[in-house]
């Protein structure tokens, strides 16, 4: 009888302390996330030092909870996977060193995982991947189109030249005086607004899959400023809807073109901004009559979690990828070098 592969995975790249247990690469046995969002709210953003302190407080508590939920002990674990990067270095280091301690204590293999590979592999917890595939990665720090020919192979065919989509959301949210984190607030406002304001779409060169959101962000700020000077008021709902429409249209159209031009079988949505309702709806509409299968993970797998690290970790483990005891947290880790 073939023994089940159980990956214990750890994710601490930003402000979530997360541990999961994943069976055979696709089945979630436990997925525990301790969010620090309440703590960082008062600062209007994630403070790295505060995040690192919380990770130290939470690390063993969250690991214990995950094992309890799964009804497992460390004896059942096949390998320990951990986010190596990218992310906040001080935060990454807590997960990396906890993972090393666990692996060392129990003589287990240690598997390093790229955070964005994790976001993409969140999809494998929903449905099997069909290659070649295209992943649209949209998060606070990333806006990328990633082409995958097979498991564990990542080619970044498009990326942002300035701000990530999530960053643009946060900055526009600040312009509208919305509380942190701004993205979900804009999404909510946008649902009650009309995209009546003319805002630019940055298509860049006709053959480019790259993105640019800094011009849009400036246009939003100018629009608000000019209206104020003329003594006009803009409904925040309409501003949010107009901004969101611009972001979403560019994301969806570039993804659709990349999917067509690269003959992919599947299009996966990945990253925290994948929780955005406007983006989900627009993708579903656009791909409803296209040949590619569209996969959008449920919300709890879009935001940072360790289940996705376990899913990516399982593939890396099967491919023989191992870290030694010198594993470090790498804030600018390269996805294509994986």
């Amino acid at each position: 009888m073939k023994q089940d592969e159980i990956i214990l995975s750890i994710e601490t790249s930003c402000d979530e302390t997360a541990v999961a247990l994943i069976k055979n690469g696709t089945e979630i046995l436990a997925n525990v996330v301790a969010s620090q969002i309440e703590s960082h709210k008062r600062f209007g953003g994630v403070v790295p030092e505060v995040a690192s302190r919380h990770h130290v407080e939470q690390m063993t508590v969250v690991t214990e909870e995950a094992l309890q939920q799964a009804g497992l002990t460390m004896e059942d674990v096949t390998a320990v996977a951990v986010t190596e990067g990218p992310g906040l270095v001080g935060a990454l280091l807590i997960g990396v060193n906890a993972a090393k301690a666990l692996a060392f204590a129990h003589g287990l293999p240690l598997v390093p995982v790229h955070h964005i590979a994790g976001h993409i592999y969140a999809n494998r917890l929903i449905t099997e991947m069909k290659f070649p595939l295209l992943a649209l990665v949209v998060s606070g720090g990333h806006t990328e189109l990633v082409l995958m020919e097979k498991h564990g192979s990542f080619e970044v065919i498009g990326e942002t030249r300035d701000d990530a989509a999530g960053e643009a959301y946060d900055k526009v949210a600040r312009t509208l005086n919305l509380p942190y984190p701004g993205g979900p607030h804009i999404d909510k406002l946008a649902q009650n607004g009309e995209p009546v304001l003319k805002l630019p779409r940055a298509w860049l060169e006709p053959d480019s899959y790259d993105f640019s959101f800094s011009g849009l962000k400036s246009a939003v700020i100018n629009t608000v400023h000019n209206a104020a000077q003329r003594g006009e008021t803009i409904r925040p709902e309409d501003l949010a809807a107009s901004f969101q429409a611009s972001v979403v249209e560019v994301l969806v159209e570039k993804a659709a073109r990349a999917a067509r031009e690269n003959n992919v079988k599947q299009v996966l949505l990945a990253g925290g901004v994948a929780a955005n309702q406007g983006l989900r709806k627009a993708l579903e509409e656009r791909f409803s009559d296209l040949p590619q299968e569209l996969v959008i993970p449920p919300l709890y797998l879009c935001t940072d979690n360790a289940a996705m690290i376990g899913a990516a970790g399982s593939v890396a483990y099967q491919k023989g990828k191992r870290a030694d005891w010198a594993l470090n947290g790498v804030p600018g880790l390269d996805l294509e070098a994986q």
Partner: peptide, 10 residues
């Protein structure tokens, strides 16, 4: 501290 507490706990 992270290594020590994780080893002690596990």
């Amino acid at each position: 501290v992270t290594i020590a507490k994780t080893m002690a706990w596990t």
